[in-house]
Protein backbone atom coordinates (compact mmCIF):
# COMPACT_ATOMS: atom_id res chain seq x y z
CA UNK A 1 0.00 0.00 0.00
CA UNK A 2 1.37 3.33 -0.98
CA UNK A 3 0.24 6.53 0.60
CA UNK A 4 0.18 9.50 -1.68
CA UNK A 5 0.12 13.16 -0.95
CA UNK A 6 -2.95 15.17 -1.73
CA UNK A 7 -2.29 17.40 -4.71
CA UNK A 8 -3.24 20.44 -2.75
CA UNK A 9 -5.19 21.15 0.35
CA UNK A 10 -7.38 24.13 -0.47
CA UNK A 11 -8.40 26.62 2.15
CA UNK A 12 -10.81 24.56 4.18
CA UNK A 13 -14.49 25.29 4.25
CA UNK A 14 -15.64 26.50 7.59
CA UNK A 15 -12.48 28.36 8.37
CA UNK A 16 -13.65 31.30 10.41
CA UNK A 17 -13.28 34.63 8.74
CA UNK A 18 -13.87 36.72 11.77
CA UNK A 19 -17.20 37.94 10.35
CA UNK A 20 -19.23 36.71 13.28
CA UNK A 21 -18.77 35.21 16.68
CA UNK A 22 -15.54 35.50 18.60
CA UNK A 23 -12.83 37.71 17.19
CA UNK A 24 -9.78 36.29 15.48
CA UNK A 25 -7.70 37.04 18.55
CA UNK A 26 -10.19 35.44 20.89
CA UNK A 27 -10.38 32.40 18.72
CA UNK A 28 -6.66 31.83 18.28
CA UNK A 29 -4.93 33.40 21.29
CA UNK A 30 -4.84 29.97 22.89
CA UNK A 31 -2.37 27.08 22.72
CA UNK A 32 -2.35 25.41 19.31
CA UNK A 33 -3.26 22.11 20.91
CA UNK A 34 -6.57 23.58 22.06
CA UNK A 35 -7.35 24.70 18.53
CA UNK A 36 -6.46 21.20 17.36
CA UNK A 37 -8.84 19.65 19.86
CA UNK A 38 -11.82 21.77 18.97
CA UNK A 39 -11.13 21.36 15.25
CA UNK A 40 -10.91 17.60 15.63
CA UNK A 41 -14.16 17.52 17.54
CA UNK A 42 -15.83 19.50 14.80
CA UNK A 43 -14.50 17.15 12.11
CA UNK A 44 -15.46 14.09 14.12
CA UNK A 45 -19.06 15.22 14.50
CA UNK A 46 -19.33 15.06 10.73
CA UNK A 47 -17.22 11.95 10.12
CA UNK A 48 -17.97 8.84 12.19
CA UNK A 49 -14.76 7.21 10.95
CA UNK A 50 -12.72 9.57 13.12
CA UNK A 51 -11.57 8.02 16.40
CA UNK A 52 -9.78 10.03 19.08
CA UNK A 53 -7.21 7.68 20.60
CA UNK A 54 -6.06 9.14 23.89
CA UNK A 55 -3.06 8.21 26.01
CA UNK A 56 -4.13 10.00 29.17
CA UNK A 57 -3.41 13.46 27.81
CA UNK A 58 -5.93 15.12 30.08
CA UNK A 59 -9.06 16.92 28.91
CA UNK A 60 -9.83 14.81 25.86
CA UNK A 61 -11.86 12.43 28.00
CA UNK A 62 -14.33 15.19 28.76
CA UNK A 63 -14.17 17.37 25.64
CA UNK A 64 -14.26 14.44 23.22
CA UNK A 65 -15.16 11.38 25.25
CA UNK A 66 -18.33 12.80 26.72
CA UNK A 67 -19.76 14.12 23.49
CA UNK A 68 -18.64 11.32 21.17
CA UNK A 69 -18.03 8.28 23.39
CA UNK A 70 -18.30 5.90 20.44
CA UNK A 71 -15.42 7.72 18.75
CA UNK A 72 -13.15 7.92 21.77
CA UNK A 73 -10.83 5.39 23.36
CA UNK A 74 -8.23 5.93 26.06
CA UNK A 75 -5.40 3.39 26.01
CA UNK A 76 -3.74 4.88 29.07
CA UNK A 77 -0.09 5.77 29.51
CA UNK A 78 1.20 3.32 26.94
CA UNK A 79 2.58 4.90 23.80
CA UNK A 80 3.75 1.74 22.03
CA UNK A 81 0.27 0.32 22.36
CA UNK A 82 -1.20 3.67 21.32
CA UNK A 83 0.52 3.39 17.95
CA UNK A 84 -0.27 -0.29 17.43
CA UNK A 85 -3.92 0.13 18.35
CA UNK A 86 -4.18 3.16 16.07
CA UNK A 87 -2.66 1.20 13.19
CA UNK A 88 -5.13 -1.62 13.81
CA UNK A 89 -8.05 0.81 13.87
CA UNK A 90 -6.88 2.41 10.63
CA UNK A 91 -6.58 -0.99 8.97
CA UNK A 92 -10.30 -1.54 9.57
CA UNK A 93 -11.17 1.67 7.74
CA UNK A 94 -11.30 4.14 10.61
CA UNK A 95 -9.36 7.41 10.95
CA UNK A 96 -7.57 7.37 14.31
CA UNK A 97 -5.99 10.47 15.82
CA UNK A 98 -3.29 9.22 18.19
CA UNK A 99 -2.65 11.77 20.92
CA UNK A 100 0.61 11.94 22.82
CA UNK A 101 3.68 14.07 23.48
CA UNK A 102 6.23 14.45 20.73
CA UNK A 103 9.11 12.79 22.55
CA UNK A 104 6.96 9.80 23.37
CA UNK A 105 5.76 9.45 19.80
CA UNK A 106 9.08 9.88 18.05
CA UNK A 107 11.50 8.28 20.47
CA UNK A 108 9.65 5.97 22.85
CA UNK A 109 7.20 4.52 20.34
CA UNK A 110 9.48 5.01 17.35
CA UNK A 111 9.41 1.39 16.26
CA UNK A 112 5.64 1.19 16.29
CA UNK A 113 5.48 4.41 14.28
CA UNK A 114 8.05 3.03 11.86
CA UNK A 115 6.65 -0.45 11.29
CA UNK A 116 2.97 -0.34 12.16
CA UNK A 117 2.01 3.19 11.11
CA UNK A 118 4.44 4.41 8.44
CA UNK A 119 5.40 0.95 7.23
CA UNK A 120 1.82 0.14 6.39
CA UNK A 121 1.04 3.62 5.03
CA UNK A 122 -2.06 3.64 7.20
CA UNK A 123 -4.05 6.86 7.75
CA UNK A 124 -3.10 7.31 11.39
CA UNK A 125 -2.80 10.94 12.48
CA UNK A 126 -0.23 11.25 15.23
CA UNK A 127 -0.81 14.54 16.98
CA UNK A 128 2.09 15.30 19.26
CA UNK A 129 2.30 18.19 21.68
CA UNK A 130 5.19 19.55 23.77
CA UNK A 131 7.49 19.39 20.74
CA UNK A 132 10.93 20.95 20.62
CA UNK A 133 11.74 22.91 23.77
CA UNK A 134 8.12 23.92 24.27
CA UNK A 135 7.84 21.89 27.47
CA UNK A 136 10.21 24.53 28.87
CA UNK A 137 10.54 24.22 32.63
CA UNK A 138 9.37 20.58 32.57
CA UNK A 139 12.96 19.76 31.74
CA UNK A 140 14.85 17.59 29.27
CA UNK A 141 12.78 14.44 29.82
CA UNK A 142 9.92 16.30 28.18
CA UNK A 143 11.86 18.10 25.49
CA UNK A 144 11.72 16.65 22.00
CA UNK A 145 14.39 18.25 19.85
CA UNK A 146 15.17 15.07 17.91
CA UNK A 147 11.66 14.22 16.71
CA UNK A 148 11.94 15.68 13.23
CA UNK A 149 15.30 14.01 12.66
CA UNK A 150 13.74 10.66 13.51
CA UNK A 151 10.41 11.01 11.76
CA UNK A 152 11.79 12.58 8.60
CA UNK A 153 13.45 9.26 7.84
CA UNK A 154 10.19 7.32 7.75
CA UNK A 155 8.75 6.72 4.28
CA UNK A 156 5.03 7.48 3.76
CA UNK A 157 4.87 9.84 6.73
CA UNK A 158 3.74 13.43 6.21
CA UNK A 159 5.25 15.74 8.83
CA UNK A 160 3.60 19.12 9.47
CA UNK A 161 4.70 21.80 11.92
CA UNK A 162 2.16 24.64 12.16
CA UNK A 163 3.56 28.10 12.87
CA UNK A 164 0.70 29.14 15.14
CA UNK A 165 -2.79 28.27 16.33
CA UNK A 166 -4.34 29.52 13.10
CA UNK A 167 -2.17 27.31 10.98
CA UNK A 168 -2.92 24.42 13.29
CA UNK A 169 -6.57 24.64 12.37
CA UNK A 170 -5.69 24.83 8.68
CA UNK A 171 -3.36 21.86 8.98
CA UNK A 172 -5.88 19.68 10.81
CA UNK A 173 -8.55 20.41 8.22
CA UNK A 174 -6.22 20.11 5.25
CA UNK A 175 -4.93 16.70 6.32
CA UNK A 176 -8.30 15.22 7.28
CA UNK A 177 -8.50 13.35 4.00
CA UNK A 178 -4.84 12.39 3.76
CA UNK A 179 -4.69 8.76 2.60
CA UNK A 180 -1.48 8.04 4.50
CA UNK A 181 -0.06 8.70 7.95
CA UNK A 182 0.50 12.15 9.43
CA UNK A 183 2.67 13.54 12.18
CA UNK A 184 1.41 16.90 13.41
CA UNK A 185 3.96 18.63 15.63
CA UNK A 186 2.52 21.01 18.20
CA UNK A 187 3.91 22.88 21.18
CA UNK A 188 2.55 23.35 24.67
CA UNK A 189 1.77 26.98 25.45
CA UNK A 190 0.17 29.71 23.36
CA UNK A 191 2.58 31.35 20.91
CA UNK A 192 2.45 34.61 18.97
CA UNK A 193 -0.02 34.68 16.09
CA UNK A 194 1.86 34.76 12.81
CA UNK A 195 -1.36 34.85 10.82
CA UNK A 196 -3.85 37.65 11.36
CA UNK A 197 -6.22 36.80 8.56
CA UNK A 198 -7.31 33.85 6.40
CA UNK A 199 -4.84 32.59 3.81
CA UNK A 200 -4.27 29.62 1.60
CA UNK A 201 -2.61 26.66 3.26
CA UNK A 202 -1.31 23.80 1.17
CA UNK A 203 0.39 20.74 2.63
CA UNK A 204 3.89 20.44 1.19
CA UNK A 205 3.98 24.03 -0.09
CA UNK A 206 6.11 26.52 1.83
CA UNK A 207 4.44 29.84 2.45
CA UNK A 208 6.33 33.01 1.65
CA UNK A 209 5.63 35.37 4.52
CA UNK A 210 7.88 38.09 3.20
CA UNK A 211 9.42 38.67 -0.19
CA UNK A 212 13.15 39.27 -0.39
CA UNK A 213 16.11 39.09 -2.72
CA UNK A 214 19.35 39.20 -0.71
CA UNK A 215 18.97 36.20 1.52
CA UNK A 216 16.29 33.66 2.52
CA UNK A 217 15.29 32.68 6.02
CA UNK A 218 13.55 29.29 6.12
CA UNK A 219 11.87 28.64 9.43
CA UNK A 220 9.61 26.00 10.92
CA UNK A 221 7.53 26.08 14.08
CA UNK A 222 6.00 28.92 16.10
CA UNK A 223 8.94 30.74 17.66
CA UNK A 224 11.35 30.18 14.77
CA UNK A 225 8.86 31.68 12.31
CA UNK A 226 8.17 34.64 14.61
CA UNK A 227 11.91 35.14 15.08
CA UNK A 228 12.45 34.97 11.33
CA UNK A 229 9.93 37.75 10.78
CA UNK A 230 11.48 39.87 13.53
CA UNK A 231 14.89 39.31 11.98
CA UNK A 232 13.65 40.24 8.51
CA UNK A 233 12.31 43.55 9.82
CA UNK A 234 15.65 44.29 11.47
CA UNK A 235 17.52 43.29 8.34
CA UNK A 236 15.31 45.60 6.27
CA UNK A 237 16.26 48.44 8.57
CA UNK A 238 19.87 47.65 7.71
CA UNK A 239 19.14 47.58 4.01
CA UNK A 240 19.12 43.79 3.61
CA UNK A 241 16.15 42.29 1.79
CA UNK A 242 15.32 38.96 3.41
CA UNK A 243 12.80 36.47 2.08
CA UNK A 244 10.99 34.56 4.80
CA UNK A 245 9.57 31.10 4.16
CA UNK A 246 7.35 29.32 6.62
CA UNK A 247 8.30 25.70 6.01
CA UNK A 248 5.30 24.19 7.76
CA UNK A 249 5.67 20.86 6.01
CA UNK A 250 8.94 19.11 6.75
CA UNK A 251 8.02 16.06 4.75
CA UNK A 252 7.50 16.15 1.87
CA UNK A 253 9.75 19.21 1.77
CA UNK A 254 8.93 21.96 -0.71
CA UNK A 255 12.00 21.44 -2.90
CA UNK A 256 10.95 24.09 -5.40
CA UNK A 257 10.81 26.80 -2.76
CA UNK A 258 14.20 25.77 -1.40
CA UNK A 259 15.78 25.67 -4.86
CA UNK A 260 14.29 29.04 -5.77
CA UNK A 261 15.76 30.50 -2.57
CA UNK A 262 19.13 28.97 -3.41
CA UNK A 263 19.11 30.35 -6.94
CA UNK A 264 17.51 33.72 -6.38
CA UNK A 265 19.04 34.89 -3.11
CA UNK A 266 22.47 34.97 -1.54
CA UNK A 267 22.07 31.99 0.72
CA UNK A 268 19.74 30.35 3.22
CA UNK A 269 19.43 30.60 6.98
CA UNK A 270 17.38 27.80 8.51
CA UNK A 271 15.72 28.20 11.90
CA UNK A 272 14.09 25.48 13.96
CA UNK A 273 13.05 24.52 17.45
CA UNK A 274 14.96 21.27 16.98
CA UNK A 275 18.50 19.94 16.97
CA UNK A 276 20.75 21.60 14.45
CA UNK A 277 21.36 18.11 13.05
CA UNK A 278 18.79 16.05 11.24
CA UNK A 279 15.89 18.48 11.02
CA UNK A 280 14.89 21.34 8.74
CA UNK A 281 18.45 22.55 8.24
CA UNK A 282 19.57 19.10 7.21
CA UNK A 283 16.60 18.66 4.92
CA UNK A 284 17.35 21.98 3.18
CA UNK A 285 21.02 21.04 2.80
CA UNK A 286 20.09 17.71 1.26
CA UNK A 287 18.15 19.53 -1.43
CA UNK A 288 20.60 22.31 -2.26
CA UNK A 289 23.79 20.26 -2.19
CA UNK A 290 22.45 18.07 -4.94
CA UNK A 291 20.70 20.59 -7.13
CA UNK A 292 21.73 24.17 -6.38
CA UNK A 293 24.70 24.44 -4.04
CA UNK A 294 24.61 27.58 -1.93
CA UNK A 295 25.68 28.63 1.53
CA UNK A 296 23.36 27.47 4.29
CA UNK A 297 23.61 28.63 7.86
CA UNK A 298 21.70 26.35 10.21
CA UNK A 299 20.28 27.72 13.44
CA UNK A 300 18.91 25.18 15.87
CA UNK A 301 19.47 23.53 19.21
CA UNK A 302 23.09 22.44 19.69
CA UNK A 303 24.07 18.85 20.29
CA UNK A 304 23.67 18.80 24.06
CA UNK A 305 21.02 18.24 26.72
CA UNK A 306 19.57 21.24 28.50
CA UNK A 307 19.01 21.03 32.21
CA UNK A 308 18.59 24.75 32.58
CA UNK A 309 15.16 25.67 33.92
CA UNK A 310 13.45 28.26 31.76
CA UNK A 311 10.45 28.90 29.56
CA UNK A 312 10.34 27.97 25.92
CA UNK A 313 11.52 31.21 24.33
CA UNK A 314 14.28 31.71 26.93
CA UNK A 315 15.50 28.18 26.41
CA UNK A 316 15.55 28.70 22.66
CA UNK A 317 17.59 31.88 23.03
CA UNK A 318 19.92 30.11 25.42
CA UNK A 319 20.28 27.40 22.81
CA UNK A 320 21.22 30.03 20.26
CA UNK A 321 17.91 30.20 18.44
CA UNK A 322 17.15 33.92 18.38
CA UNK A 323 16.33 36.72 16.01
CA UNK A 324 19.73 38.29 16.74
CA UNK A 325 21.49 35.14 15.56
CA UNK A 326 19.32 35.07 12.47
CA UNK A 327 20.12 38.70 11.70
CA UNK A 328 23.84 38.10 12.08
CA UNK A 329 23.83 34.97 9.94
CA UNK A 330 21.63 36.48 7.24
CA UNK A 331 23.60 39.71 7.10
CA UNK A 332 26.80 37.72 6.73
CA UNK A 333 25.39 35.66 3.86
CA UNK A 334 23.99 38.75 2.15
CA UNK A 335 27.29 40.58 2.47
CA UNK A 336 29.23 37.69 0.97
CA UNK A 337 26.98 37.60 -2.05
Amino acid sequence: MTATMPETAPAPAGTPTGDAGPSWEERYAVPAREVYRRTLLELARADPRIVCVDSDMGGLETLFGEELPEQYVNVGIAEANLMGVSAGLAATGLLPYANTLSGFAAARACEQVKIDVAGNGLPVRIVATHAGLSAGHYGPTHHAVEDLAILRTLPNLTVVVPADAVETEYAVRATAGLPGPLFLRLGRAATPLVHQEPYEFTVGRARELRAGTDVTIVATGPHPVSMALEAARELAARGVSARVLNMHTIKPLDREAVLAAARETGGIVTVEDHLVVGGLGAAVCEVVTQEAPCRVHRIGVPDRFFDHVADERELLELAGVSSERIVAAAASLAAAR
Partner: peptide, 8 residues
Amino acid sequence: SLASGVAL
Protein backbone atom coordinates in the same frame (compact mmCIF):
# COMPACT_ATOMS: atom_id res chain seq x y z
CA SER B 1 -1.60 -4.07 19.88
CA LEU B 2 -2.40 -4.34 16.19
CA ALA B 3 -4.98 -7.05 16.80
CA SER B 4 -6.46 -4.97 19.63
CA GLY B 5 -6.89 -2.03 17.31
CA VAL B 6 -8.50 -4.28 14.73
CA ALA B 7 -10.83 -5.74 17.37
CA LEU B 8 -11.82 -2.24 18.44
